[in-house]
């Protein structure tokens, strides 16, 4: 993960899969943004402000459009349980599952998330 940006207007790219939201202008450079809702099959909620999490996969950078950034976690290795099947989420995208303050969280496998849609 590189940085977090506010939601930016994206230019649609025709012909590509729905999970690609489009191109945004980040301080003069172009960034392809993926739609987190589509990728994780989660419904959109009207109250979400939206944000873009910039991730680096190999040498390429992508934006991941999310509903909101809740918190930053520093997760100690031992608090992460092995990945388990979760209802509604593709298990292949889940690296691990953890719990903090009684709330469950998922550690996403960004490579697996992005791999099917990045260019060759």
């Amino acid at each position: 993960m590189r940085e977090i940006l506010p939601r930016l207007p994206a230019t649609r790219i025709p012909g590509v899969v729905e999970a690609i939201e489009g191109l945004v202008n980040v301080r003069g450079t172009l960034l392809t943004v993926l739609d987190g809702h589509v990728l994780l099959s989660q419904p959109r909620r009207a109250e979400d402000e939206g944000a873009i999490v910039v991730v680096e996969v190999g040498s390429r950078r992508y934006g991941l459009g999310v509903a909101q950034v809740v918190d930053f976690l520093e997760v100690p290795e031992h608090s992460i349980a092995e990945r388990a099947d979760l209802p509604g989420i593709d298990a292949r995208l889940v690296k691990a599952v953890g719990i903090r303050d009684g709330v469950h969280f998922i550690v996403l496998d960004i490579d697996a998330l992005v791999a099917p849609i990045i260019g060759t």
Binding site: T11, I13, P14, G15, V16, V17, I20, L23, N25, G28, T29, L30, L31, T32, R60, R61, Y62, P116, I117, I118, G119, T120
Partner: peptide
């Protein structure tokens, strides 16, 4: 014409992008 990491399946008639 600015470089960007083209996603898979981008149609051939898209030659690039600009701001």
């Amino acid at each position: 014409v600015a470089p960007f990491d083209a996603p898979r399946g981008m149609p051939p008639y898209v030659g690039g992008a600009t701001i």
